Amino acid sequence: MSAFSKDTWINGLWKQNPGLVQLLGLCPILAVSTTMVNAVSLGIATIVVMALANLSVATLRNFIPYEIRIPVFILIIASLVTVVDLLFNAYLHELYLVLGIFIPLIVTNCIVLARIEAFAAKNDPLVSTFDGIAQGVGLLLVLAVLGTMRELIGAGTLFGGIDLIIEGASAIKVLGTDYPGFLIAILPPGAFFALGCLIAAFNWINSRATARKHAAPVTPQAPADAVPES
């Protein structure tokens, strides 16, 4: 399988999307997606961990005894998450305080461990690295859309908290300064409602695509031994 295979990206972004199809990592997806900035930041951290964890496991898979593979996988993930956690603390300290426990919790994120067990432990390093990136980007897209929906409906803004990353930047008041806000959108129930709508839209698109595929007319083919008319 090629590392740049189209199927790798289609699976990660759509067919096997971690947030919409596999429904893994729901705790950080629901908890951190109050704003787009928070959601995308955690998504980027997850991409880095998934890519490096897949690379490490795929490289070492022939040296890891089958009986202790899960503890070794968790140890590798924990080491990478610790590095990412310390980098956030050192260079994005304010954002690090906002994300809180959810960066260290990447260690227990089922998306990372499940992909290592299902893919990286059975494939070569390059393919595994790009698979981790594709799966991470799929999660990032879900987080970005969910964070945008909740922030826009809940506060009427976009890029809230961007000043934690870019000094002097500020949120964009998309719905104006008079928008009263819709508090439930940025509370936990709003996260469930928004994700449910996102999954419903995803399933509707898939069902429409399947219906169009089945409804497509089949062009009859002439028999192989047919003689064309002169």
Results as ranks from 00 to 15, higher is better:
A211V: 07
I172M: 01
N206H: 10
M149N: 02
I165T: 04
L152T: 02
H214R: 14
D163V: 06
L187R: 10
K213E: 13
L195I: 05
L143K: 04
A226T: 09
F202L: 03
A200C: 08
T210L: 15
F193W: 12
A224T: 07
L187F: 08
L141N: 00
I162D: 13
A224K: 14
G176E: 15
T177Y: 07
M149C: 12
F182R: 01
I184Q: 01
L141Q: 02
A171L: 01
I186R: 10
Y179L: 11
I153T: 10
I172Y: 06
F159M: 08
L146C: 00
Q221P: 00
P220S: 14
N206C: 03
A200D: 10
F192P: 02
L195T: 02
P188G: 12
V145R: 03
F192T: 09
S207G: 03
L175W: 05
I184D: 01
I172C: 02
E151T: 08
F193Y: 13
I162Q: 12
F159A: 11
G196E: 04
G147T: 04
L141G: 06
N206I: 04
I172D: 04
T219L: 15
G156L: 08
A222K: 13
A191C: 07
R208D: 11
A200G: 10
T148D: 03
W204Y: 13
S207Y: 12
V145C: 06
I186F: 02
P188I: 12
E151H: 01
V227T: 14
L164S: 13
A155E: 09
L158W: 02
A144W: 06
I205H: 12
D225K: 11
G161I: 10
P223F: 15
A194P: 00
G168Y: 14
P217V: 12
L146Y: 01
P180I: 04
A185R: 05
A209Q: 15
P189F: 11
R212Q: 12
A211K: 11
A209Y: 12
A169W: 15
F193C: 05
R208L: 15
P189Q: 09
F192N: 07
T148C: 04
L195E: 06
A155W: 08
L175D: 09
K173R: 15
I162S: 13
L152Q: 03
E151R: 00
